[in-house]
């Protein structure tokens, strides 16, 4: 209970800061007009980076792009997982076997490594980053959702609908979907946390967002070279990243407990 609200609270703080604070501190995250490696001051709450860009603006815009990319990636994965899981669980038999073997193949990749492979060949943009993450995230959603569909399929109201002559599509969308989607939402919430981390790792290894885009992973990958001069480049993006991920994980855990109780 507490967990759910604490999670929401953490997400809310980060979102509020990243959308409202730029109204007060109006630096362009790309402009390089300030001295480099400045320690935090009132005008630059997080200091500046190696090129003299305001770190606060970069972090805040980085949080936004992390959120947008992760939400987009999870939506794509959710849609694919929902369709595959539903079809697989509802029809069973041969269709199920084929789809689940395909899912097996995608699950065989530790998903960040899979995303790295895809990013090698995709055009480097925030859209591709989301696609690459979704391409390996959907499989676990499909596997999990199939299990809920299998469970709900056996319920009496589904049998009643079949007896009344309802079509497959109607049964799937009207009867199974509303009763099975709860667990999937839990995993999607947890998935947002994983997707944020994945985006950061991709940008960190040089395959996600590219310079000079403000991205938490990218700022951190620069920070490695300037740890001795500008530790602020490590602290601030890192804290924001962790609070965001922690928020989604706690939210997901809390929702899970709520659904089970």
């Amino acid at each position: 209970m507490l967990k759910r609200y604490l999670g929401l609270f953490l997400i809310a703080i980060v979102v509020i800061i990243s959308f409202l604070a730029p109204l007060i501190i109006k630096h362009n995250p790309l402009s390089q007009k300030f001295p480099s490696f400045k320690t935090p001051t009132i005008n630059h709450p997080f200091g500046t980076d190696e090129l003299g860009r305001d770190l606060f603006s970069r972090v805040v815009h980085g949080v936004r792009s992390s959120l947008v990319n992760a939400l987009f990636a999870v939506s794509l994965a959710l849609l694919a997982g929902l369709i595959v899981g539903m079809v697989s669980g509802y029809y069973g038999g041969f269709v199920d076997s084929v789809l689940m073997r395909i899912v097996d193949i995608f699950l065989a990749f530790p998903y960040i490594l899979g995303a790295i492979v895809l990013m090698v060949v995709l055009k480097q943009s925030s859209f591709s980053v989301s696609v690459a993450i979704a391409a390996f995230l959907w499989a676990s959603f499909a596997r999990l959702y199939r299990a809920s569909v299998l469970e709900v399929k056996e319920k009496d109201y589904v049998k009643a609908a079949i007896a009344m002559g309802a079509g497959d599509l109607r049964i799937m969308t009207r009867h199974i979907l509303p009763n099975s989607v709860a667990t999937l939402i839990v995993y999607a919430t947890l998935g947002v946390g994983s997707a944020i981390l994945a985006e950061a790792v991709l940008s960190f290894v040089g395959l996600g967002l590219q310079h000079p885009a403000p991205s938490l992973g990218l700022i951190l990958s620069d920070a490695v070279n300037y740890l001795d001069r500008a530790p602020q480049m490590m602290w601030f993006p890192g804290f924001f990243l962790i609070i965001l991920v922690l928020g989604f994980i706690m939210c997901g855990d809390g929702l899970n407990e709520y659904i089970r109780s």
Binding site: L227, D228, M234, L246
Partner: peptide, 22 residues
């Protein structure tokens, strides 16, 4: 342990590098 789950490995590495190395 709840906190550590949400920490990116590379960030943890940077913190250790900064604290113990630098």
């Amino acid at each position: 342990s709840a906190f550590l789950i949400s920490v990116p490995v590379f960030w943890l590495g940077m913190i250790l590098q900064y604290t113990f190395g630098i």
